[in-house]
Design a protein around this nucleic acid. Structure first.
Length: 476
DNA sequence: ACGATTTGACCTCC
DNA sequence: GGAGGTCAAATCGT
């Protein structure tokens, strides 16, 4: 429903400027508190300063535009407004340094607007409770937002018959009285977020912010309804961020999330969006495979990406310059402290990182060494065991062999002994006169051999031929 | 009891 | 007149 031409009027920019100024004011308050209580780090304080500068920059930039754009002209003029989010000031995208380009529309030429104002102004004044043009203080969202802040995304027509118009605040009535009746223009972008299909949930999806659902609508031609969410801190802090979530018809695992307006609540002050989600958020996230969970963010702004990049760069540069200027022009205690503390902090961080990585490395090495030692021990134990076994076997076989050899030797010795004894006996018992012959060495040797062979074979009572003796029968 | 969600009615815009 | 966006009472969940 967003318009697509490029004209901006004062009334288009006013809410944005108010928003910027309110934000700057809040940030300054926060900074003041921080400095009073010393509750935050110097880096956080510096960040706050940068945010404030950026908000002021944006406001000034927009006000400069108004000077030229708001000049009544005969024909409708076309301009492009660009509101850039400062890197520190997080809009509802959980990504730093986002650039929001607004290509906004005012289809009502100034003349026509004036006409409308004239025709409707009086009735609105009546509805607003009087013709007085009460100047609303700058803190329009200060803690107690107007009852109609729930309508702040809209500027209603000044319709006398509008059943709710009488409940609107004086402020808005005044605005309504004076300005064209258009929807407030807010930064708008979309993201395509993929979640697992099993979840079957159409939660607001976890983007780190807390959202409250305020409506659901069946959309013509769409299979799934569209959910409407606004920031939980809307009532307390006047945060204007809203989003719409709709499941894709083509791929139900995708949700198209359209964000509108950036967070001005304290959530935005925290650089890292928190995952303080509940219920469905948690379920969805638990369900998501870490690999699948990688969110495919397709941010589509209404201006070309080339313009966006250029503006992003120029904005970043402007922020840098301003921050530098500030720290040079006002060498306060804070900036001095920052100059000293930042290198110190980064050094400490580096040391801590190195320590951590060394500890990690040591742990890994220790682990691998322990493993190696354990393996070696195991191998050695095995080897020892095997050696012991071998040794036992060898000892056993050696013992057996020795025993066998002993037995053999003993047997041989015994045989020889008996042989000699027998020869001696034979010599004593010789019935013939054969002593000289027996005494001859050759005969003795032959007899000894014969006896040895005889005893070895275990034969008993056989006849043997003795050399040079003839047949003799010997009985043992 | 209180906060979140649902849902029908209402409103704006095209 | 209809689609989209919002409100607010009713309902639900803790």
């Amino acid at each position: 429903m967003e318009s697509s031409s490029n004209t901006l009027s004062y009334w288009d920019l006013k809410p944005l400027i108010m928003n910027e100024l309110t934000q700057a004011k809040d940030l300054l308050k926060q900074l003041q508190n921080d400095l009073d209580t010393s509750s935050t780090s110097t880096i956080a304080s510096k960040l706050l300063v940068t945010k404030v500068i950026c908000s002021f920059d944006n406001s000034v930039s927009m006000l400069n535009r108004i000077k030229t754009d708001a000049q009544p002209t005969a024909a409708s003029t076309t301009t492009t407004a660009t509101v850039i989010s400062p890197p520190g000031v997080i809009n509802s995208m959980p990504i730093d340094s986002k650039v929001i380009d607004l290509t906004l529309t005012d289809k009502t030429p100034p003349a026509a607007s004036a006409y409308r104002n004239q025709t409707t102004g009086s009735t609105t004044a009546a509805a607003g409770g009087g013709a007085g043009s009460i100047e609303r203080p700058a803190s329009i969202f200060e803690n107690n937002p107007p009852r109609s802040d729930s309508r702040s995304d809209y500027e209603y027509n000044n319709n006398n018959n509008h059943p709710r118009s009488d409940s609107r605040s004086d402020y808005e009535s005044d605005i309504a009285k004076d300005q064209p009746k258009k929807r407030k223009v807010l930064p708008r972008w979309t993201e395509n977020v993929r979640v697992c299909e099993q979840s079957g949930l159409e939660g607001p999806l976890d983007d780190g912010y807390n959202w409250k659902k305020y409506g659901q609508k069946d959309i013509l031609g769409a299979k799934y309804p569209r959910g409407y969410y606004r920031c939980t801190h809307r009532n307390v802090q006047g945060c204007i961020a809203i989003k719409q979530v709709q499941r894709s018809d083509k791929d139900p695992s995708y949700f198209t999330v359209t964000y509108q307006g950036r967070h001005t609540c304290t959530q935005a002050s925290e650089d890292i969006p928190r995952n303080t989600s509940r219920s469905k958020h948690d379920q969805l996230n638990k369900c998501q495979d870490p690999k699948q969970k990688k969110t495919e963010v397709l941010i589509s702004f209404q201006t070309s990406s080339r313009d966006k990049s250029v503006e992003e760069i120029s904005f970043a540069k402007s922020c840098q310059v301003r921050a530098k200027e500030l720290s040079l022009q006002k060498p306060t205690q804070l900036s001095k402290a920052l100059d000293i503390s930042i290198p110190k902090i980064s050094l400490t961080k580096e040391i801590s990182n190195q320590q951590s990585s060394l500890a990690k490395e040591f742990s890994i090495q220790k682990s691998s060494h322990t493993k190696e030692i354990s393996n070696l021990q195991s191998c050695q134990t095995k080897e020892i065991s095997s050696l012991t076994k071998d040794f036992t076997l060898q000892r056993s076989s050696s013992a057996k062999e020795i025993s066998n050899q002993q037995s053999c030797i003993t047997k041989e010795f015994s045989i020889e002994k008996r042989s000699i004894e027998w020869v001696l006996w034979l010599n004593d018992q010789a019935p013939f006169d054969i002593v000289p012959a027996i005494c001859s060495i050759s005969w003795s040797y032959a007899v000894l051999n014969m006896v040895h062979a005889f005893l070895s074979s275990g034969l008993d009572g056989h006849s043997y031929m003795l050399p040079n003796v003839g047949v003799q029968r010997w009985s043992f």
